[in-house]
């Protein structure tokens, strides 16, 4: 079982992913914007961060940049999950991004497998 922080602004989408992961035995916390994600990182130490790119105010990559400046991310895997391509000029690996999932082809099984894989490392 892994602690998963899920950052997704669409509430129905977030509830879907949370259900898929909870039923796979993970402990899932859901937040809907970048500031709440930063607050949650202070309180919890997630093993995996599942992060949408399009968020209100700050996008997912901007959030990763902020997180890196004051949070130890070495023990946390980041899974980007979006229907938008991440910016090509950003070194995602430097931000701890282990995987990028395309929402348009995402299935419950793929999300479960991806989180399980990176929760175990």
């Amino acid at each position: 079982m892994a602690r998963v922080l899920l950052v997704e602004d669409d509430r129905w989408q977030a509830e879907c992913y949370a259900l898929w992961l909870t039923q796979a035995g993970h402990d899932v916390q859901v937040v809907h914007d970048a500031q709440s994600a930063l607050d949650a990182l202070d309180d919890e130490s997630p093993h995996v961060l599942v992060l949408d790119i399009l968020l209100p105010h700050a996008n997912g990559v901007q959030l990763l940049h902020q997180m890196r400046s004051y949070t130890d991310m070495s023990s946390m895997a980041v899974v980007l999950c979006s229907s938008t391509q991440p910016p090509a000029n950003v070194d995602l690996a430097a931000y701890g991004v282990a995987a990028v999932l395309d929402k348009t082809t995402l299935t419950p099984q793929l999300l479960r497998q991806t989180v399980a894989r990176y929760a175990a490392t």
Partner: peptide, 21 residues
């Protein structure tokens, strides 16, 4: 149109996935 289509996919997946109760 992409966001609602993706949501429809995901809701349908959840209804059909035998691993989801």
């Amino acid at each position: 149109l992409k966001a609602p289509l993706v949501l429809i996919n995901h809701l349908t997946d959840a209804l059909n996935d035998p691993a989801i109760s």
